[in-house]
Nucleic acid binder design. Structure first.
Lengths: 226, 226, 226, 226
DNA sequence: TATGAATGAGATTTCATTCAT
DNA sequence: TATGAATGAAATCTCATTCAT
């Protein structure tokens, strides 16, 4: 029996003042997480940074976990909304064009506040430990799937779900790691090209791989490439 | 001024018995990390699991950080050695063959003890916070670079370093995420094919993404898309 | 210097509505005390249960102490009134008849709401700590004393005050403990008989303790002390 | 499903020093409970009073609850042992003699440290809330039962268990309340006589009560006494 | 060298109470 | 009068680390 995920909010703020407090707390949480990391970020410290008392913090959030969860939710909801908004006008574009645009968007979203992105990214496993399922990943997955589905016929992969997994996982990792480890790449237009090459090379209809894959393709490829 | 990374070992064990104790502690650390996660893994608990006193633990390791670092080092050193060992006989193989073999190896290494892999994976950002540079990533990077360098001429990417980054990051993320989130993929031979398709499709010499790639294209594209 | 007992009420409710609120709060207090016990019963929780805001609660009661004290007073005042009402018609009854009737009444009062009785009973020491003297015990004592005084001549005990203490204390304890620990006894008519036997055996004129109680002293003492 | 009572001890002290610490903590607990009562007695305060750090306290006791429980156990175990020791030589004495001796012992035990007795007495309901069954009450009950059983034939009560309940509850309450509320009675030999009169009058073979009890006795009594 | 008792700073969380609206 | 947001002192408990034995 999986334990029900604990709520991330304790009570909805009714008055304006309360909403402001609530926001201030979340923002302060982000700031403190950035500066000190999750462990060193004490609730007292966060409250202080938000300019409220700890009591207020606990009036709106049931625990440190809940607080961080709420921040995460806010952050990811925004990111997902952005992504979706960016995706819509691309539906009718040619795949390469759309792909590059998407990659640029992913990067630009992460670059906006790289440190916060990184901190929250590192919190994901912890949230999993807390029993929170990653609904945003699932929604992202579904968005990308819906984007690719209409073009399925022209693509090489036969298993759409797996293709989405491969694409989302690899592109996400590349963008994230670039932000984290190679900020120089972010200024480099050729990086986008390379990520696009990875994605498009993977999706493209022409057979490319070899030896053990579906018979005839393999043969053709072997001849073609080696 | 970046702080000098603290040592992960306090004193090298001289006697055999000491070495055994040291190993026992590291192994216990892994066990406890698995069971309880990093935060809940107290040094007292680890010592108990190892069958020694906390005092002894602190005789061999200067701190909890050091202990975890040492475990990490042991683990990654082994992983890297395995990887290197697997890489050597593949030097002379055709790329697709070698690539599939490598992917299989990465997966099998992670599958061996998936939970431990995951726990240690999640510790990486923490170690970074501690000021430890990820030497193993760098060495992995160099290994892959050395593997690809001789074939550079036949590959599409023009920037070898970036290509290595793209490959290592994406393949690693795919294998890791599969172990974590989609264990069903691990049993599925087609998953290896897809990852291989991603890698090979990225590396292959023929242009594929149409519109983009090498120098002039970029210019054209800029005109086209922006 | 003993601190003056703090008031249990802040302001007397003037309007009817206010009286209703006041009652609602007290009733809610009882409910919450029952459910959660004294410590877990927070004033916010009580206010919520009463359907008012904490602010209102503090308009009628100066503190949590005062709130609980007021509840206690209400409860004991009612209990005492009941007891007194029951006592009046028994004044002219033979002692055994009256005694059984009283015991039955004590039991039935406690059985009415055993949990509340128990909770409030357990609060008595706390109230003592708060410096509140137990006026209701004193009034109960006086009632029983007044009940026994007219029959003093026919009773064995020579010290009326002590006899009242012995009777009240033991009967009260028996009834309370039965409600708490042996609810089965409450259904058992023979329990009433046994308690009555205890009380009547204690009060009866014939000497009984034989062997050690110095016989003649009794007579002398009567003269000397009462 | 009743929750298993939590342990009152965390780990048994192995070294002498540890035992001393453990004792010091328990003694300090008693001292602080006396002075401040349960609520105001903070674990930090207790540790300070014991001259150790809080950490040490929590090394031996798992919680404040556990700490108090352990103190209670120690206290009641001693009291019970004393009582049992006093009971043995009385087995062969005439009932009135034995009864007076027992009452004197109960009083003297409580008088030894009246405040501590009172504090611990008031903690009993709390322990019940914690799910701890009152084993010592049960053992006391059995001791008294074993004491009365051989004389059952000569006693009035027909239900031995109920008789034990009546005796233990009333005598205990009288002694306790006297210690608490009427310390003057403790100096007064006639108080012991009255309590003995209560107990012996209850137990004595001669019929005494009336109207509704077992038929013939009732009749006789009515004639005799009223 | 090994042990494990002891330390104590510091973390999370609660709740009686106040007071601006 | 009523509301409920805000306060903040204080309580319980943990755990990395030290050091006397």
């Amino acid at each position: 029996m999986p334990r029900r995920p604990p709520p991330s909010r304790r009570r909805a703020p009714r008055q304006e003042r309360a909403q402001a407090t609530c926001d201030a707390i979340l923002t302060a949480t982000a700031r403190v997480l950035l500066k000190d990391g999750y462990e060193a970020a004490s609730t007292n410290r966060i409250a202080q940074e938000a300019g409220v008392s700890v009591g207020s913090l606990y009036q709106y959030f049931p625990s440190k976990e809940g607080l961080v969860t709420a921040l995460m939710e806010r952050h990811r909801a925004r990111g997902l909304a952005d992504f979706e908004a960016g995706l819509v006008p691309l539906a009718s574009q040619p795949l390469p064009v759309a792909m590059r645009a998407l990659i640029r968007q992913v990067i630009s979203v992460k670059r906006e506040d790289p440190k916060l992105h990184q901190v929250l990214h590192e919190l994901i496993p912890r949230m999993r430990q807390w029993g929170l399922s990653d609904v945003y990943s699932q929604r992202l997955f579904r968005l990308v799937r819906a984007f690719l589905a209409p073009r399925f016929e022209e693509l090489r992969p036969q298993n759409l779900d797996m293709a989405v997994f491969v694409l989302v996982t690899s592109v996400e990792a590349l963008c994230h790691t670039a932000v984290t480890d190679r900020p120089d790449y972010l200024e480099d237009e050729s990086f986008v090209e390379e990520v696009a090459a990875l994605a498009l090379g993977y999706l493209r209809p022409e057979a490319v791989t070899a030896t053990s894959a579906p018979p005839r393709r393999v043969a053709r490829e072997r001849v073609t490439r080696m």
